[in-house]
Amino acid sequence: MLSFIGRSIIQKIITLFFVSVVSFLIIHLAPGKPSQVDPLNPKFTPEMVERFRKEFHLDKPLYIQYIYFYRNLFTGKTVSWKDNQSALKKIWERFLNSLPLFIVGTILTWTLSFPIGIRSAIFRGGFYDRSSTFFSYLLISIPGFFFAYILIIFVVNSFHVPVIGMETFGIGDPSWPRWLMDRVWHLLLPSVLGATGGIAILSRYVRSQMLEVESQDYVRTARAKGVPEEQVLYKHALRNALLPFVTMFGLILPGLIGGSVIIESIFSWPGMGRMAYEAILARDYPIILTVNFISAVLVLAGTFVSDVLYMVVDPRIRL
């Protein structure tokens, strides 16, 4: 076990190094220039562009820029080109905004998918199963932004309440339950939208896992012993069907920082995804690279966590 952890950490550090090199190269090779040194902007004279290039070290060779950037990142000195704010501070603020969205979305996904999937598996081939399959595919295939627009227009036109942003603007200083509920309401639509895709996919997984486990020998044995059907399903079958989902739990981690670009932009939610997206548009390299690096760390940490979790819950697995 310990040797596995040690090996895996070393492997992951090496991977991280390559990720940092490749992402750095990709961003610098991408077409377009940081908005401060864009030669297409008529307001900038060549001298200004030159001075900015110097200030951002863009006149140095790539490998020196690489060293400068990661040196600043590890000493916490990275600043955004756009507004000279510390990159880590910016990311932390945005992370806190994305967090509630992520938590509510995850709760919705994980609480809804299981009952839906299990029921589909129990009544497979029936009307409920078919309609849930239909809706799952519908939700998977409908473009998120389109669905979001439809929902927003519907809610605003029929209920006349604001839905955009983190709170109702100009609400003043209401009592705290009102304040809280107002925030919850603003969370509702974006997190439901963020969760729909997840619910659709996850409930399909649950269904197929249940079906697979149901045909196993130990389930048949349990039934043959005369164990009540409910106990067969929820104790013998479900517990074993849950195993693969433990690994998926580890993989949610990167979603924390990735946020959702589309949902956050549509709902003008000041989260991580939107910040990263706007940084990409402005070619704000420090922000893009920092977000990229952190999410790479989280992906690797996520896989590591799920490996370990798997070992813990499934004693059959020895690494």
Binding site: Y149, I152, I153, V156, N157, H160, V161, P162, V163, I164, G165, T168, F169, G170, S265, I266, F267, S268, R274
Partner: peptide
């Protein structure tokens, strides 16, 4: 108050909802 709403359609909806 100067709000940043990066999407035209949602700006319109916020206007109807009274928050712009």
């Amino acid at each position: 108050i100067y709000r940043i709403v990066p999407d035209l359609l949602t700006q319109e909806m916020e206007f109807y909802a009274g928050t712009i």
